[in-house]
Design a protein around this nucleic acid. Structure first.
Lengths: 227, 227
DNA sequence: CTATGATTCAAACGAACGTATGAATTATAA
DNA sequence: TTATAATTCATACGTTCGTTTGAATCATAG
């Protein structure tokens, strides 16, 4: 078997695809853009991955396998250290979302490119993508949900699930980077440069997520509560 | 001028496009899907709108013009009633995000279909779409940011802008509907049916957003704060 | 060195894409 | 009714899409 070349080619394709899918989306990226971006022959994608869909899945699997393993490892460590007692919500939130955000600094694991790709893809309309991601995430999400149930016994489970969902949305936007509505413009934030911004993003987002997670429960029945 | 037919045709195209863009995205929807979905000739889109891009913009303009006018109206009313005093954060958040969410019940203004489309499009990679949306939103976002600055004088402006961004993300996911990671499954929330869910979503999300907006400020310097 | 399998390559496939055309049809106004 | 403008229609254009093919090139094991 001649592996030396093919491994290189596979990796080059994955890198190019990751970047292009991030920049232009799945449907908006053509095979020819990918292969020429990777400097390989057009047929290489179908040879190594079978199809464009399979390539997309492999782009995510390469990163998500490590991420979700790491999330599991962190949660297991926290729980064994707690010895049966409930964890702090901040620990759980940091284990799930902090672990994700810290990938931004890890260029070997895709860095900001993959994070932006993931953030944008979570709302992607393509059915096969959402199905694939849901499957990749199912186990780890379940574990973290259970941990939150135990950590917040007074909050209805349905409420926790919703707030998990909201936290995912806030995080997704935080990492999608290019602010959807140009809310964060450079002239507005004079005091920090671009390198600082990422370091500060994590504590910023964590404060927000925890504030939302532990907010007072909503009052359904009463009309127009004035809080 | 023969308006009777063309207005019908225009509207039918916009309705079909709105639904298809929501379900399959901009790039994932073809002109032929749109025209056959609307029951009109293939050439009708280019005749009435000029191009696919212009159609996309018109799909949004039709809804956003009303939404942002309404947001302005609400904020103006609140501010004139407050007579110079700062507004409550809850009033501002409800004016911006509540006004949006209440479109879900208004079938004449697109209902949940448009809300899902908007939620998904805010992270869309296409440059022309983000540019267009940023322009459509610029004025109203600026006014609401200023109101928040005044309502929260002790919070650094940069922090408020970021939290606005986070709130937008949480809201986007809340309305994108099809839970990205299948977090919210039917069997998990037995006590409420689908019709209830939307009514309850607004107070749920409002609690979360306000909790996040008013969360303690993040501590940047200290490593691994244990809150 | 040779044989075998893995990989790369140029070229082509049919299908679908957004758009344009010019004639046919319909509505409006004189 | 007739002239004129607006709209619809079937059809086709040129391009790009994802995928396939079969030969050429490479690496490696016997």
């Amino acid at each position: 078997m001649a592996e030396a070349r093919s491994v290189d080619t596979r990796e080059r394709i994955l890198d190019a695809a990751e970047h292009l899918f991030m920049a232009h989306g799945y449907e908006g990226t053509s095979m020819r853009q990918i292969t020429s971006g990777a400097g390989v022959n057009l047929a290489a994608v179908n040879y190594h991955f079978g199809s464009k869909e399979s390539l997309m899945q492999e782009v995510f699997r390469r990163r998500l396998d490590w991420l979700n393993d790491e999330r599991m490892r962190v949660l297991n460590a926290l729980e064994s250290e707690a010895a049966g007692k409930p964890l702090k919500p901040s620990q759980i939130v940091d284990g799930f979302f902090g672990t994700l955000l810290r990938m931004a600094d890890d260029e070997e694991r895709g860095g900001v490119t993959f994070l932006r790709l993931l953030g944008r893809t979570l709302t992607d309309p393509s059915e096969f993508i959402r199905t694939f991601l849901a499957h990749e995430y199912a186990e780890v999400v379940d574990r973290y949900k259970e941990a939150l149930f135990k950590a917040l016994p007074d909050v209805p489970k349905a409420e926790i699930v919703w707030r998990f969902h909201f936290m995912l949305g806030a995080t997704s936007y935080a990492i999608a980077g290019t602010d959807a509505l140009r809310l964060v413009t450079d002239w507005q934030i004079e005091e920090e440069d671009a390198t600082d911004r990422l370091d500060r993003l994590v504590p910023r987002l964590m404060s927000f997520l925890l504030g939302g997670l532990r907010a007072p429960l909503p009052q359904f029945s009463s009309p127009t509560v004035d809080l």
